[in-house]
Each structure stands twice: as C-alpha cells, then as structure tokens.
Design a binder for these strands. Structure first.
Lengths: 200, 200
DNA sequence: TTAAATTTCGACTCATTGTTCGAAATAAGA
DNA sequence: TCTTATTTCGAACAATGAGTCGAAATTTAA
C-alpha cells in the first residue's frame, strides 16, 4: 500500500530531479547534460534516478509534457474570449510572455529542446506535441479570423505564424545579454510590428 | 615542395570533408555528427580526416569561418551604399535571404551551430565571430541611422535587431515544411512588418 | 626506375556515459 | 519488535566515439 504522503514525497523527488535536469541543461545544453551531473545536482546517486525515470530521455520528455501542458492551460481560457481576434491574439502573446518571464530557462528548454531530442522516441515520449499543436493551432486560427476581419494584413497565416513566432523568440532569447523582456517593451514591439495595422 | 595543383586538390579534399560534415549535421545535428559518419560520407577513412583537420571541432570551426566570411563579403559592398539607411538595411536582408535560399542547410548550420559549440575553444576557432560581429554591427548602425531619420520607430536598436533577427530566422527556418522562402514573400513581410513605417 | 614526399587507413587506445545489478539502508505496517 | 515494502546507491557493464600510431599505398620528382 502506498500512502498519500508517500505519493506526494515521491512526486517531490521527481520534481527535484526534473529541476536539476533543467539547471544542468542550462549549463551545457541537452546533449551534454549527463546523468552523472543531474544526479549530483539533485543529491541522489545516479542509479536512483533510474528508480524514478526509466531513461535520460524520459526525464526530458516529462519536462516537456509538464511545460507544454502548463502553457496550454494558461492559454486556453484566453483564446475562448469573445473579443476581437486580434486582441485575443495579443493577450495570448502577453500571457506567454509573462510565463517566460517567470522561468526563462524552462522556456528556453521548451522551445529549443524539441529539435535536439531524438524523434524516433515512440509512444508516450511525444505527448507534449499534443499540447504544442493545440496551441499553435488555436493561435493560427485566431490569426486567420483576424485576417478575415481585416485586423491583420492578408498574408498566408502559416507564414505569419512563423514570423511572429520568430519575432517572439528573438525578443526573449536572442542576444548575449539575456535581459528579461518587460511587459511594456514587449507590448511596444507588438504595437510597432503588428499592432498598428488597420488603425486610423 | 608542394605544387599548385597539389594545393588545389588538397583544398578540394578539404571541401569534400566540409560538405560531408554539413550533410551529416543536417541529418543528426552537430552533437551527434560523428567523425565515423562524416568519414563514411566523404569516402575517406576516419584517420584521414585527421590528416586534414586536427579535430572534429576544427572542422566545424572552419565551416563557420568560411560561411560567415562569405556572408560578410556579400553584405559589405551593400552597406556602403549612400542611400536611405532603411533601404540599405532592407537590401541587406534581401541579400542574405538570397544566400540562404541557395544553401539553406549551410545557413541553418551557421545560425544555430554557434550555440552548440563549446565556447572555451581558444584562439583561432573563434575567428568566425569577427565576421559575425562586423555584420551585426553594421546592420545595427544602419538601424540607428534609420531611427535617427525617423524611418523607423524609436525603439532601442538592440531590441529591434533581436526582433528582426528572430523574424528573419522564423521565416526561413521555423515550421515543419522547410519550404524555400521566395524573394517576393520575404519582401512582402518586410513591408508589412517594418517597411510601412513612416510612409504616407 | 628509384628515393623521397604525400596521402590513406586499419587497428588500437582511452575516456565518457547511459544503463543495470544486487545488496544495503530506511521507512511502514502488524 | 519483526516482517515487508520502499528507497538508495556503489560498482560494474557495454556501447559509443574522439583521437593516435605505424605502416602501407600512391604520387612526385629526379
């Protein structure tokens, strides 16, 4: 039998491992994040990690699901607003921006790790993609509605998504000084780049 | 003594190795690009690679210098135009776009590899940064001039650089279908995002 | 043709690292 | 307290992959 508290403690240990993995990722990138270092960081023996996760890949996969699920759950209530699609879209961006501001490293991981992770990871290790796809899906349809209503210029919405995605990524993650991007600055950029269209 | 033709053939073999390295990079990313696979791809024994390059890192470093030098040499004549800074800036973006269009994989490497490469690589292995810095430098000062002349909105130019860099990267490299971005589409985007400011 | 220089590579070393095993330590329940 | 379940980890294993060595093959030049 496994008590309630035991389950909770166990979950806490898992989180400790995940967070250590993240901080090792921050130092070396995903490829060079070794189990040894994660273990040391988490204050566990290496073998113990395998008691909680079946493989290195699973650790990062778990990090991905949790992260993307969180993003999705933060976005979902917003995209269902009945508002101008353009405003809803901008609200969504701002929401994600706020999340990133809280934990920049996590999001750098969420946005860059996928490319580095072996694709052939069958089954459940790709669960995070569900959430990612949902998010991109709703954002892109917001864009399409907004284009329809002339709130955005008539450009292929998938291209526009890419452009805005890149823009966002550039603002937060590019450059040497990883300064935190303030809400004000971000809104200013949104206004300059896509916010002014269709006004006056 | 080493004849002219010998030197040329030797250079060709180097290029063969570099190009193989690039195609292995394309398949697996830089971390998982092994010397064994590069050797097989280049039709050489692994040991032979070490006759031409002193290490794996040097191969990729060489690829980086060559690439960034090429970018710089393509950009340099343009940035010295005496034109509106904004037009010069846009011309530069278009020039780089044209280069990317010719060899997308190479540029994906040039733009993403730096992050993955060990920083501590002393000495000459960082030569490419010279060119990269020069390029970002001139582009950013173009931006500053343009802001000065009210051709662009008054935003911190380093932020604007990041934003535009991200935008560019997003257009060319994001998304599943790595479709080639046509000149027309790209110009359309430049117009929509930054080209319209200050007009009419 | 022959000696010297250049180029190639098979076989090996050596370090790293993901993963497993079995046993020890600790906690829970009776 | 005694038994059982849970948690921990040191040590070993196996695979991988960067880099080396010495000798063989090939080319050059005389």
């Amino acid at each position: 039998m496994i008590s309630n508290r035991q389950a909770k403690e166990r979950e806490q240990r898992k989180e400790q491992i995940l967070s250590s993995a993240l901080s090792v990722f921050k130092k070396h990138g995903i490829e060079k994040a070794t189990m040894d270092e994660i273990a040391k960081e988490a204050d566990f023996g290496k073998a113990t990690l395998y008691y909680y996760f079946s493989s290195k890949e699973e650790i990062f996969a778990e990090q991905l699901v949790r992260g993307w699920r969180m993003i999705w759950e933060s976005i979902e209530p917003i995209v269902h607003q009945t508002n101008q699609p353009k405003n809803t879209f901008i609200d969504s961006l701002n929401t994600i921006g706020a999340l990133v501001r809280k934990d920049q490293v996590l999001f750098e991981f969420l946005f860059t790790a996928p490319k580095a992770l072996p694709d052939a990871a069958g089954e459940s290790n790709q669960d995070w993609k569900k959430y990612q796809k949902k998010m991109y899906g709703v954002l892109q349809s917001l864009l399409e509605e907004a284009i329809e209503k002339k709130e955005f210029p008539e450009i292929r919405s998938d291209m526009l998504m890419r452009a805005i995605g890149g823009l966002f990524h550039g603002l937060f993650f590019l450059g040497d000084n990883k300064k935190i991007m303030s809400r004000e600055t971000m809104e200013e950029f949104i206004t300059v780049f896509i916010g002014n269209y269709g006004k006056s």
